[in-house]
Write a protein that binds this DNA or RNA. Structure first.
Lengths: 211, 211, 211, 211
DNA sequence: GCATAAACGAGACGGTACGTCCAGTCTTGTC
DNA sequence: GACAAGACTGGACGTACCGTCTCGTTTATGC
């Protein structure tokens, strides 16, 4: 997950596994209470009952720590079969919005993205720890819709990847924008409007040639 | 724009108008060079040839200053008539993406949004200075499409507002997510795919009843 | 007293005389409440109901202002004839100590003396406004004692000046040191001890040849 | 000397002893060059090659730092046996005057005394670090004079203390006043006059009953 | 069982920026 | 031209964190 000093026959005192969990939990607590910009490494170490040195031994800085602390929140997203493509879309939209209602998630997500605009390594970390892992939801939803006959099969795997990416950007981007920028509620009514729009878009676009 | 010390009987030396422009320009320069997190008030004041106190007399802090400095960049967005709804959408998508390629815009936008998750006043400021002002593009595009007969007229002004908001969130959110989170290029090909999706969504959704 | 823009045919609005008194009184008040180091020009101007510009038009800075504000306190010292040299000494010692009990006098005196160690002009100002004016007390006391026959007449006016200076330094220095440095009370008992010492010193030294 | 974080179970990195010396030396240098009022904590820290926080970790402020920096100058005062009481007095007067010729001593001493008029803790610090330590000179000089038979022995230790305090105030106060307030030279001639006065005062007063 | 060696807590360290305060000057409009 | 008001530059303040360092202490393993 981080930088375990690899090597087989390690000697010396091993790193405390409990410390890791305590630190990540403390980081989430601090995010809730203080938000990104007021969160300090010293405060996290104090909450976790751990020396500051221990933090820096495991994470390079605030950004990396927060990405790890928040990433697993996103893994809780699931996609049960609601019987139709539109219902599945509505479900994922509402689930994601609920996640973004958690202060630690909303503040951390935008902050690390902001930092990542100037930090290549951080961008990769975010992508591998958060973004790419949630594309599974789109892949799963499409597969189900195709199995149901709601969407046509895509032969070309390259084009399929592009479509997945597009859908993911549309859903994730729109929900984030609605929730955090426009600061309007993401409720059932809105989710229905949005998923109707997206549904028609997918069906219509599928009929046309997409390069 | 900021906090003009209201009151009719003005007295004392008036605030320098030149200082305002110098400060905002210096802020944008510093954002380009340093990014959000490394930008400091002291550095901005030095670049602007202005005392730090002058900054604090006019803006409450870094967040407010940056919102104002960046807001006017967004005002440069325009929507010339490209002849069709799809062409108009593609144009605005590419224009917006080009704006997000500017370092000061990309880093500042996400950072202030991140801060705004814990700061009501900042959220309002962002909304009034940036978000609401750009909705004009959606309103204009829809009106043109309706004039061309590409989209039906919406009777209910309430529903019309909701649709405008939805379209705005979809376009802005998706482009931002593609550009900053997925970190993939927003080029003509992608813009064509996305606008096709959106076009079909709009047309299809227009045929159905939207509550 | 300060720097009156001399010249006969002055034009324009004349300086307010009331402002002067208000400023000096405000300065003394501020000294009592805040002490030397916390006293600010802005605060004085506000207390006096006067613009800061007006202060700077009349005094060069904090030091000069405070010297003027405090100097007149010292003019209140008097030396009524108590019938004997020792009684006169005791009286002046106690009077001076009482003056030093006033916060504005004690803090201001030492502070301006401290500043004057690096400022020739300030030293002169202190000397002319405070120190030299109080030597009158020593001169008067000696004259009375000589008239009473308690002290011999000094022929050489040069030597007489030196003796006056010495007595002045001994009395003023010792009282200040007792009151402000040793921070012990200057009461009747101590005044009696000190004046006895000084009396014997004067009588004994008068018998010997003083160069 | 300062605030050693007491407690037996010391932990953490110990404070650098070298830093202490460097800071005090830098403080004296800065006093010489800039004087009290222009001396800044930031400047001292820069001269000492030390972070500003290190200063504040050890001293509460400028006043406390300067007292400590100057106190040890006074410890250099000595009182070799010159053979007679008068010679000893002259020696100590001239030594003290020489010390007061050092810019760091003259400016710092008066400034901290001025500040101490509003700060109980600072007054105590000055007393323990400077004043009381130099009373040793008076005690020593009297003991020698008593051994020589120049002064009578004082039975009552209480009265002896009072006499010591009085002599100390007279010597220190008079020399300071001559040097810093009257701003006249303290040379051999003046020292002879003053010590003659004091000698006769001591001898004469000893013959009388002092309450 | 005892040395080795890394991890650990504590906290001092050199830095950097903060946001505030004050000095002293300048620019208005009013008296 | 003096004045009240208040914005201006400039610089120090004392605080808060950063990320590093240096201690003494603890805890695994491997000889």
């Amino acid at each position: 997950m981080r930088n375990p000093v690899s090597g087989p026959g390690r000697t010396g005192r091993p790193r405390s596994a409990a410390a890791d969990a305590a630190i990540l939990a403390a980081t989430r607590d601090a995010l809730v209470e203080l938000g990104w910009s007021k969160l300090t490494m010293g405060d996290v170490s104090a909450r976790a009952g751990v020396a500051k040195t221990t933090l820096y031994r495991r994470w390079a800085g605030k950004n990396e720590l927060v990405v790890d602390a928040v990433a697993e929140l996103f893994d809780a997203l699931e996609l049960p079969d609601r019987g139709s493509l539109q219902a599945d879309i509505e479900y994922v939209v509402l689930s994601f919005a609920e996640l973004l209602r958690r202060p630690e998630a909303r503040t951390a997500l935008m902050a690390v993205v902001a930092e990542s605009t100037r930090d290549e390594a951080l961008r990769d970390r975010i992508r591998s720890a958060i973004v790419d892992r949630q594309k599974r939801l789109v892949v799963l939803g499409r597969a189900r819709a195709q199995a149901r006959g709601e969407l046509p099969y895509e032969e070309d795997p390259h084009a399929a990847g592009h479509t997945t990416d597009l859908i993911f950007d549309v859903i994730a981007g729109t929900v984030v924008h609605r929730a955090l920028v426009s600061a309007e509620p993401v409720d059932e009514v809105w989710a229905a409007s949005f998923s109707a729009l997206l549904m028609h878009g997918l069906l219509g676009a599928a009929g046309t040639a997409t390069p």
